[in-house]
Design a protein around this nucleic acid. Structure first.
Lengths: 343, 343
DNA sequence: CTGTTAGCGCGTTCAA
DNA sequence: TTGAACGCGCTAACAG
């Protein structure tokens, strides 16, 4: 009889060694069964499995990682953990990873270079097995530098290199389609709320807008372009700017849905009806866009699929392989915020 | 001269031992400087710091964790990584953790008990130092069981226990205030789109609604209550249900903003104006609600602050301490979707 | 103040 | 097939 009674449920921390002991085998045997890296006799296997079940043993993923030189985790550098846009990508990544035993570490850069660098350092010091970078402000050079330490998949830009894969949606084509849609509806005075001028996506979208105008023989009027920052408040400002400059327009192409939401509000505040007085189209097709009043016409981006693809490609990269991805093209979703121009 | 030239940048994996060697000290000394757990002579410190800088050394957080018995990570069990509601809480958690060296592991339960259990197991096998549970379907018993292994902070329910802290916003009071607001505007036929009947939050909100009616001497009419699931599509359904049952009402209190968005759309589709024909109020004050047309009156919940508080309390719990939290009360935000009833 | 010695919990040699 | 021994990178206990 023990002199002191054991505490009811002391730490509840069961180690591989304890399993080995209660099963009456060596730790290596338990390990072999866990990893499946070698044959083990049936009786020992049974004994071990029973011990595992009885003790409710759960392998320590970190110790395993230390021994194997991997952490079974990947880093995801996003810009805002609560962004309705990137959120869809995060979902895609998460869903794709379920069942692989690999966990995503989400960190936010807040569109701030310094923050992004710190977060990357953090990820590296946790020895993530790979990293997914969702746009942001890191330079290609910096990405390449990080890629010497860890495989990287970058979304939102195009670059090649060892240990690097990239993927992006065709912003140019999407913007072209959006503008074309407005033109087909008879609009000629089409304003554009552009995104940040140093953001590759918005630059492409501006190009697509110009190209569509050009093809339709509509002269480009720089006064109809106003810059915003992809967030709602800047969409409000943009419309106000346009109106205060007394620009006349019958349609607005906002470079993303969030600025379109802002634009919608500004128009409402001025008693300008959508779509009766002004047609409005966005870009992204956020989940919320079908609940805008009126439901927002926009360009659907396959963001969820992009997240999935990024995860899939990264896993391949980690295993030392390569893989091709083809993302669906951006597609027009014509809802109720755009309509034919009344003569 | 070396016989073979070193590869340009082989693995780039620098260990503490390497730092110790190039600095000409023992590993323990390096460790001491890193952890700050003891005094070290200035010259050795300088040598080590120089070596760290020159080698660009980054400590392996996992190895450190293994040695210390902690992982410097916490788990966060949310329901959907892309939920506009919980997203704010995630931001709060993330921001509160910045600088502590502790990283949050976000996992999603999808309002599915089985998923939640699996995710919790996953977190435990990664030996997180603590867990924050954002509502969900785990029973109090299950939470208590997990708490034997790891400190837990639960948001959205009230429970006490060893290793457990809880915090929640006062749903009853918030719902009471929302209903009261409508009553003050002269409404008496007030419909309520309730949340899931097995969800504590929505039960409380329904109670608050009934209480406010009662206080105003308005008889409770069960026909004016219809159940939804906190998501947009169910808000659309709810309004349609109400209308098809030919219920007359001049105001709607939706149990959260997302169902209010759905309700708004359904009303729009039927040409029922907000707020001219029907007043509409939500609950949560999601960031998007100020961009609804018309801007949505709602009850502001301090979700970001809740996230911050949860993280703060958990850190205390991990250190073995306790702490009191007091969350701000839910507050009425009267915007433009509610107005005085015209006689 | 500092170096040496032991682990943390695993996987993986190497013999047997 | 199996066990013993070693190491992953780091911290902590123990001497000195």
């Amino acid at each position: 009889m023990a002199r002191h009674s054991e505490p009811a449920a002391p730490q509840e921390i069961v180690t591989l060694a304890m399993v080995a002991e209660t099963a009456g085998v060596s730790p290596s045997t338990v390990s072999r069964i866990l990893t499946g890296h070698a044959r083990v006799s049936d009786d020992k296997r049974r004994a071990v499995e029973e011990a595992i079940a009885r003790l409710n043993y759960q392998p320590n993923v970190l110790a395993r990682g230390l021994a194997q030189g991997r952490t079974l985790s990947i880093g995801v550098l996003t810009q805002d953990i609560n962004s309705p846009f990137y959120g869809e990508a995060l979902r895609g990544i998460e869903d794709e990873l379920v069942g692989t035993g690999i966990v995503p570490l989400f960190v936010s850069g807040h569109w701030n270079l310094q923050d992004e660098i710190e977060r990357m350092q953090h990820l590296l010091s946790r020895r993530v097995d790979g990293v997914i970078v969702l746009t942001g402000r890191l330079t290609d050079e910096q990405i390449r530098e990080y890629a010497r330490r860890v495989p990287i998949v970058v979304a939102g830009r195009t670059m090649k290199g060892h240990n690097i894969a990239s993927m992006r949606v065709d912003d140019f084509k999407g913007a072209h389609r959006a503008t074309q849609h407005l033109i087909e509806l008879g609009h000629r005075r089409i304003a554009h709320i552009a995104g940040p001028q140093d953001h590759a996506d918005s630059v492409e979208r501006l190009k697509g807008y110009r190209k569509a105008l050009e093809e339709a023989g509509i002269p480009f009027d720089p006064k109809l372009v106003v810059y915003a920052d992809f967030h709602e408040p800047s969409g409000v400002l943009a419309i106000n700017q346009l109106l205060e400059a007394r620009q006349s327009f019958s349609a607005v192409f906002a470079s993303n849905d969030q600025t379109a939401y802002g634009a919608r509000l500004a128009l409402y505040q001025r008693n300008i009806r959508v779509p009766e007085d002004v047609s409005l189209i966005g870009f992204d097709d956020l989940p919320g866009s079908r609940y805008v009043i009126p439901p927002l016409s926009t360009i659907h981006q396959p963001v969820y699929e992009l997240g999935q693809a990024a995860a899939r490609v990264l896993l391949k990269l980690i295993e030392g392989g390569k893989s091709r991805v083809s993302l669906p093209e951006p597609q027009l979703v014509a809802r109720e915020s755009t309509r034919r121009l009344r003569p």
